[in-house]
Simulated assay, not measured.
Amino acid sequence: MPDKLKISSSHWVLIVALLATAFACYLLIRPYVNSIMMAFIISLLMFPIHEKMESKLPSYPNLASLLSCVILTFIIVIPLLFVFGAIVQQGSKFSQNVYQWVTHGGIQTVFNHPLVVKVLAITNQYLPFDEISPQQIAQKVGQFATTFGSNLVGISAKILGDATSFIMDFLLMLFVLFFLLRDHDKIIASLRHIIPLSRSQEDRLLQQIEQVSKSAVMGSFLTAIAQGFAGGIGMWLAGFPGLFWGTMMGFASFIPVVGTALVWIPATIYLFVTGDTGWAVFLGIWSVALVGSIDNLLRPLLMQGSAGMNTLLIFFSLLGGIQLFGLIGLIYGPLIFAITIVFFNMYEEEFQSFLNKQDNS
């Protein structure tokens, strides 16, 4: 057993002061924590590329880090600009088609469908609501369609504001990423020196943080891309704007439990009540068999390295992460769970003799 560390009163004053100033620093950087964390996680993903840059430019660490950031920018930003432009174009065209469909009696055709008539009759008979009138619903939809143009302007302004915020966060993330890549060895050495753990425990902790960060990013974002791609193809074959709705399905895949069903179920119902029964059946089967299987198979496969977490823990880490932190919680949730499991294993090893003695008592 190592000698016990003797902590004097002056040491306690120093520890308390350090914690207080560290908390004050956290308050200063709290608005930028997500950008810093994303820079940290992306630095783990980019480090193999950056090591090649460093090997070719050993005397120019600043240039190597700059080139790594430029490569990341081309990998992420340039494709996003093309995709965003196509999404805006398809979304605008789809909105115009919806407006034309509603104002030219399309909604009335839906309410005249025998299945819709039957569902409304059952609803009015058994549910304790006021009677649902198709005319009232059609009137509300018509009013929405009339004001859709002004609503679209407001939505566009919000999207523009979100895009501006995304660009600012991305630039801040690149700035932090530059220093993380350039000073990677110094940062790791400083952390090892400060953390009061053995070298083997530090190695395990850092390894799990790296592994879980990579698996969380791969598991969440690659699954979203795969589901958006497969869902977009299905929607395109069924006659919808494929890129627009594929992107919507990609975003919807981040929502636990319901996921892409938020998009393909209404689309399937629409096809069915408008008479495209064959395409409705196709889209339903395609979405359940292909898009749903991607989430059930690919996500657990990509996240299987999350510190030995089983599917139940991964599910609650994702669900709780989104609830607590928002979309970034898809990374924070598994990371918190994994670090907790690592510390629990360290505790079990450190107190193994005591725990065994307790089991035998």
Score class of each variant (00 low, 15 high):
324 L>F: 14
285 I>H: 00
256 P>I: 07
245 W>M: 12
327 L>T: 12
342 V>N: 11
249 M>C: 05
250 G>K: 06
242 G>R: 00
267 A>Y: 07
296 N>P: 01
291 V>M: 06
295 D>H: 03
283 L>K: 10
293 S>G: 00
241 P>W: 04
256 P>V: 06
321 G>P: 07
302 L>H: 01
319 L>V: 15
317 S>Y: 09
279 W>R: 15
314 I>F: 02
248 M>N: 12
251 F>L: 15
310 N>H: 09
307 A>H: 04
287 S>I: 00
312 L>N: 08
308 G>P: 03
321 G>V: 04
331 I>D: 03
305 G>R: 01
301 L>H: 04
326 G>I: 14
287 S>H: 06
322 I>K: 05
291 V>S: 07
326 G>E: 09
269 I>M: 15
284 G>K: 02
241 P>A: 12
297 L>F: 06
264 W>E: 13
291 V>D: 03
260 T>M: 06
310 N>K: 03
298 L>T: 00
325 F>T: 09
253 S>L: 01
259 G>W: 07
319 L>D: 08
333 G>N: 10
302 L>R: 02
333 G>V: 05
307 A>M: 11
272 F>D: 04
341 I>Q: 12
301 L>Y: 12
287 S>R: 06
245 W>G: 02
255 I>C: 09
275 G>C: 12
270 Y>S: 14
241 P>Q: 08
290 L>M: 04
294 I>G: 01
246 G>R: 07
247 T>P: 05
280 A>L: 06
337 F>Q: 07
